[in-house]
C-alpha cells in the first residue's frame, strides 16, 4: 500500500496472513493461523478470546516485539516484517505505545519521569518541554497532582494511568494495550477504558485492546474474535 492510499483510508496498521508457531519440537504450537486485520486511526479495536488463544502473541507481533513466521505487517504504510531490529526499535519509540496488564513502571522514577522515558529516547524536546508535556499528559490521565510521586507510591489504578500516559508520551499513531484493565477493580477498569477511548477520539490514534472482557470489547468500535489462532 502506498502512503497516499494509507492516508486515504486512515489505516495505521495492516497485517496480512500472520502465522506464528510457538515452542519447539513436540511442544510446538501453531498460535496464529493466518491472521489478517487493519487498525484505523481514531478507532478503538478489541481482540477477544479465551486464555491461550494467541491474543498476546498477536499483540507482540503487531507491536514489533516479535516476528511472524509468515505474513506481513505494514505500519503507517511501511513494511515492517523483515525490518531489522535497528529499524524496528526507533519505530516502536516514535509510533507505538504499549500498555500492559501489569503497569511495568520504573518503581524508583516519579510518575512524570516514567512518562518522560520515551521522550528522552526520542530526544526531540528540551528538558523543560519534556516536563511540560509530561504535566499535560498527567492532566489528561487525571493525575495532575501526582506527577512527583514515585511510581511505587501510587495505587494500582494510578500506576496503570501512568502507564497509559507513558504510551502517549511521543503521541504515537497506535496504542497497543494487553489486558490493560485485567488487574484492576471495576471502577478503575472503566476509568482506564474510558480514558483510552477518549484519547483515541481526541488524538486520532488507533487503539488495539487485547482482552477477555466481552463487556469491554462490546464498547469498542471494532471487535475481533480470536479462537484457536484464527481471527473472525
Amino acid at each position: 500500500m502506498t502512503d497516499t492510499a494509507h492516508e486515504k483510508n486512515c489505516v495505521v496498521l495492516r497485517a496480512e496472513n500472520l502465522h506464528r508457531w510457538l515452542g519447539e519440537d513436540e511442544n510446538r504450537v501453531h498460535a496464529l493461523k493466518g491472521v489478517s486485520l487493519s487498525l484505523e486511526a481514531g478507532k478503538v479495536h478489541a481482540v477477544v478470546g479465551p486464555s491461550g488463544c494467541g491474543k498476546s502473541t498477536l499483540l507482540y507481533l503487531l507491536g514489533l516485539l516479535d516476528r511472524p513466521d509468515e505474513g506481513d505487517i505494514w505500519l503507517l504504510g511501511k513494511h515492517m516484517t523483515k525490518a531489522s531490529e535497528a529499524r524496528r526499535t526507533p519505530v516502536r519509540n516514535e509510533h507505538l505505545g504499549f500498555v500492559f496488564q501489569f503497569h511495568f513502571l520504573m518503581p524508583e522514577f516519579t510518575a512524570a519521569e516514567n512518562i518522560m522515558l520515551p521522550m528522552r529516547k526520542l530526544n526531540r524536546l528540551t528538558e523543560i518541554q519534556m516536563k511540560e508535556r509530561a504535566d499535560q499528559i498527567l492532566q489528561e490521565v487525571g493525575l495532575e497532582d501526582k506527577g512527583q510521586r514515585l511510581a511505587y507510591h501510587l495505587s494500582g489504578g494510578e500506576q496503570q494511568r501512568v502507564a497509559v500516559g507513558r504510551a502517549l508520551a511521543n503521541d504515537p499513531g497506535l496504542i497497543l494495550a494487553d489486558e490493560p484493565t485485567g488487574n484492576l477493580d471495576q471502577q478503575n477498569s472503566d476509568s482506564i477504558f474510558s480514558l483510552l477511548c477518549r484519547l483515541a477520539g481526541e488524538k486520532k490514534q488507533a487503539v488495539l485492546i487485547v482482552t477477555h472482557n466481552l463487556d469491554l470489547a462490546r464498547q469498542c468500535d471494532h471487535t475481533f474474535s480470536l479462537v484457536d489462532g484464527n481471527l473472525t
Partner: peptide
C-alpha cells in the same frame, strides 16, 4: 529484566 524489557519495548536500543 522486566524494566529492561520495557525500556526495549519503548524504543531503547541494546546499545542504550
Amino acid at each position: 529484566q522486566r524494566e529492561i524489557a520495557i525500556l526495549r519495548s519503548i524504543g531503547y536500543t541494546p546499545g542504550d
